[in-house]
């Protein structure tokens, strides 16, 4: 188990979605293996991972589109894929790029998908479609054929389809693909609105800034497994495994630490000390004993990007295990 185990245990029954030991093999290729994912109700969970890390496969299994080779999926308390008829009406999703009929206009496409929505009364469909189009800013292009849409417009229409009905859970797979900065901002607003309305949101993205800006929780996938998950703030905390020491005698400080086999290096802001094998008080003690003047000691917030890079680059099993322990410990 990686990440905040105890939180998961405490959240029984309150997860909007949960997977256990999820595994999918496509013709001998393992796409996803042993994924234990938990999306707490009301959270905005950002799913991070490089291309081919299994994000989309996991989402497709979550939505019952793909049958797992092994493991269990629970969506809104329903076992998937068998509970699809119960869970999916409450779920809106934009997966793997929007799928629409190229020969129909945006509005006609939404009308068609509206007709299939169990939660929409027949009389309400045109209204719901109009509202959704407005919400994603497609009003001007709603009458044009989908064939002629730009990538960003297609993405917006996909979002509109996911939001046709008020949902309990919204899944957005790479929602900002093809959007300009303004569009990206709009998506961010929409996600924030959904969050404010109590909707659980799962966003997969490779744009870390996106996730950092909009998410309350993060799950990091790499090579088909979850390498870290938990609250964003806790993870960032855990990931900041370095200490920044401000001192006029940087060289002396580095020497003193290296004598004690603590990795350290001088940087323009100060001495950066790696905390992987030691703790902050120990570092301060070493420095004080060596007579190095210490003006300021501060934990370095590395940011998601750093964490992500470290999580996904630590590909060897040993590194992963080490990271795992580290994150678990720090989270406590």
């Amino acid at each position: 188990m990686s990440g905040l185990t105890e939180q998961g245990a405490a959240a029984v029954g309150t997860a909007a979605a949960r997977t256990k030991g999820l595994r999918k093999v496509y013709r001998g290729t393992v796409a996803v293996d042993n994924v234990d994912l938990e999306v707490p109700t009301g959270a905005v969970l950002g799913m991070l991972g490089p291309n081919g890390s299994g994000k989309t496969t996991t989402i497709r299994m979550l939505l019952g589109l793909v049958t797992p080779t092994a493991g269990e999926v629970e969506l809104l308390g329903q076992k998937m894929p068998d509970g699809a008829a119960k869970a999916l009406p409450e779920v809106g999703a934009l997966v793997e790029g929007p799928g629409f009929y190229p020969f129909l206009s945006g509005r006609e496409n939404l009308l068609r998908f509206g007709a299939a929505e169990p939660l929409l009364a027949t009389a309400d469909i045109p209204n719901a479609v109009g509202t959704a189009i407005e919400r994603v800013g497609l009003t001007a292009a709603a009458g044009r054929r989908f064939r002629g849409y730009s990538l960003g417009m297609k993405q917006r229409l996909g979002l509109a389809a996911a939001l046709l009905v008020p949902r309990k859970f919204v899944v957005l797979d790479e929602p900002t693909n093809g959007l300009d900065p303004a569009g990206t901002r709009e998506i961010r607003t929409i996600i924030a609105d959904l969050h404010a309305a109590g909707t659980t949101v799962l966003v997969s993205s490779h744009l870390l800034a996106e996730v950092e800006a909009t998410c309350t929780h993060v799950a990091v996938l790499n090579q088909g497994t979850v390498v870290a998950q938990g609250e964003l703030s806790a993870l960032l905390e855990a990931g900041s495994a370095s200490l920044l020491v401000t001192t006029p005698e940087a060289t002396a400080a580095v020497d003193a630490l290296r004598d004690q086999r603590v990795p350290a290096r001088p940087t323009p802001e100060g001495v950066r000390v790696d905390l992987t094998a030691t703790t902050a008080p120990a570092v301060v003690e070493v420095l004080v004993r060596a007579g190095v003047p210490v003006y300021e000691v501060r934990k370095q917030r590395t940011g998601l990007e750093d964490l992500f890079a470290r999580l996904t680059e630590a590909s060897s099993a040993a590194d992963l295990a080490e990271l795992d322990t580290l994150i678990t410990e720090e989270a406590r």
Binding site: L65, P89, G97, G99, P118
Partner: peptide, 14 residues
């Protein structure tokens, strides 16, 4: 191929 079948499955249409 168009992805519309997926949309129908997610609506969901059984």
């Amino acid at each position: 191929a168009h992805g519309t079948l997926r949309g129908m499955l997610m609506a969901p249409v059984g």
